[in-house]
């Protein structure tokens, strides 16, 4: 490499270390068919999922069966009560969030759905939230309902007894799908192939 030196006129000039360049791009985002119907349901205070062939119900629906990769069309309403499958207590003020600390963010398996949604738990001290706790949706006032999942302000305990047997998906297979028992690797045959119907228990 040749020796490089600054021209005399630039010597002693403070180097530019960084520049701040704000950039703004505006997008018109498309929700998609499945999400649109879900959000219209929310406007009517209903929680609409989609049933995929084989029976699983996904909320919110995304228009595709993630196991088969096929478009889904059958809509079903699920309950507004469910079970906490796991949670975390948040103590850090997070960008864009105006929640009072600490608050609880939980995975909630709504009755009739097969995959948990993530939402807030309130109306109970954060340190009393439990896996298995039964909770129900608390909606905004009617005039504030908008086509967004945030129209459900949070979930709160129903007071029912805990569902102590609650499992997360995959946990039903021994102690988890991707665990090695006796040093033997799990195989694809451990799970049901949704296209061929083979595999699984």
């Amino acid at each position: 490499m040749p020796e490089i030196s600054l021209p005399e006129s630039l010597q002693g000039v403070e180097a530019v270390r960084s520049v701040r360049i704000p950039a703004r791009l505006d997008y018109e985002f498309t929700a998609g068919n499945a999400s649109s119907r879900f959000l219209r349901g929310i406007q009517q205070k209903k929680i609409i999922g989609q049933r995929v062939p084989g029976g699983r119900v996904y909320v919110p629906p995304r228009g595709a069966d993630p196991e088969r990769g096929q478009a889904t069309t059958e809509e079903v309403e699920v309950a507004q009560v469910g079970t906490v499958t796991s949670f975390c207590m948040v103590n850090v003020a997070f960008y864009g969030s105006s929640m009072e600390l600490p608050y609880t963010s939980a995975l909630i398996l709504l009755d009739g759905a097969d995959l948990s949604i993530m939402h807030l738990i309130q109306e109970i001290p954060a340190n009393e939230v439990r896996i298995g706790m039964r909770v129900e949706a608390v909606w905004r006032d009617d005039e504030d309902i908008e086509p967004t999942l945030e129209s459900i302000k949070w979930f709160r305990p129903t007071g029912e007894p805990d569902d102590t047997n609650v499992r997360i998906p995959g946990e039903d297979h021994g102690t988890g799908l991707g665990s090695w028992v006796g040093g033997v690797a799990p195989t694809e045959a451990l799970v049901r192939n949704p296209r061929t119907g083979k595999g699984g228990h």
Partner: peptide, 20 residues
């Protein structure tokens, strides 16, 4: 897939198959 009712998010099958 990210959001699937079949998969185990704690011990993902994909991770174990990759290792095997």
């Amino acid at each position: 897939p990210t959001l699937s009712a079949e998969r185990d998010t704690v011990l993902p099958l994909g991770g174990a198959l990759c290792a095997a």
